[in-house]
Amino acid sequence: MTSVTELAYIGIEASDLDAWERFGVDLMGMQKSERSDGVLALRMDDKAHRWIIVGGDADDLAFTGFACANDADLDDIVAGLRAAGTEVSEGAADLAAARRVDRLFVTTDPVGNRVELIVGLADADTPFRSETLLSHFVTGDGGAGHEFLMERADRQEILDWYGILGFKITDFIKEQVAPGVYADAVFTHCNGRHHSVAWADMPFPKRLHHFMIEVGDINDVGLAYDRCMDAKQPFEMTLGMHPNDEMFSFYVRTPSGFNIEYGWGGLIIDEATWEIKHLDKLDSWGHRAPQVVADLLQP
């Protein structure tokens, strides 16, 4: 079956690009690619960009770019979406140039999120260089990372739609987080990364709960944790580990109000042998809310 190969880039509409530049470069360890005309582009590797932040009031997810291996695969996926009744339009040349891709189609998923299907994300003119990382961001075959989105539509409709893109279910987690309140999530993959897109039915005001970026050295997680703490950047969750993707990570609030999961050691799955799991805990340990930790530390 034809499939997208990776989550290639993410777009954010943000009200404070200066804050995003400080956050992305100084705290997260990314490299600035571009800053002009109300656009901030950030690099995580040798690609031209992985984050595109555009000026605006939404402070939320603006678009997600999924890459295809070649033109034929892109055309097959577009045809599949159209056959299923989804409107898909080809991006104009100026949009493709802005995204630094060879070809681009634009559509909308069942929740209303803008999806860009692309071929040929360009390499940057210079090698990636971070001023803060000891190691590197883990991208490559796994793409830029994963996004954790709010469901806000029929789950099966969402899964069927993303199935046309080639996404397959990895596992499910449903945990009671308060009396009568559940976090109910499904995780999907399009390559060896445990999940590139996850969906959850849980209270959260944004379209995007978090985007995960992964580093190649566990020490980079600790150093980023300290940088965020020293900068008094609000935390969503402290250090911890998930039982499904085995990611050691923390969650920090972005200038737009959703979160970055900053992690190390994520599971790579083997599609040929993977079996879907149903779990009842979001965390193996840790990932506590900062106020809970503060209360526990009181004498």
Results as ranks from 00 to 15, higher is better:
R22S: 15
V39W: 07
E6S: 13
A41F: 02
L42S: 02
D26K: 06
R22A: 13
D16C: 10
A19D: 01
I10Y: 06
F23W: 11
E34V: 11
A8Y: 00
R22C: 11
T5F: 11
M28I: 12
D16K: 02
M28S: 06
E21Y: 10
S3N: 09
D37M: 05
S15L: 11
S15C: 14
V4A: 04
E34T: 06
S3R: 01
E21A: 05
G38T: 13
D18F: 11
A14K: 00
D37P: 14
L42N: 01
M28P: 00
D18A: 09
G29E: 01
S36Y: 08
G11V: 01
V4W: 01
S15N: 06
F23N: 05
E13G: 12
S33P: 10
M28Y: 05
G24V: 02
L27Y: 08
G38I: 09
V4S: 05
F23R: 03
G29A: 10
L7H: 02
Q31H: 06
D16T: 10
S33F: 07
S36A: 07
S36H: 15
L17M: 11
S15I: 09
D26G: 06
E6L: 07
I12L: 08
V4C: 07
A41M: 08
R35V: 08
A8L: 10
A41V: 08
G24P: 00
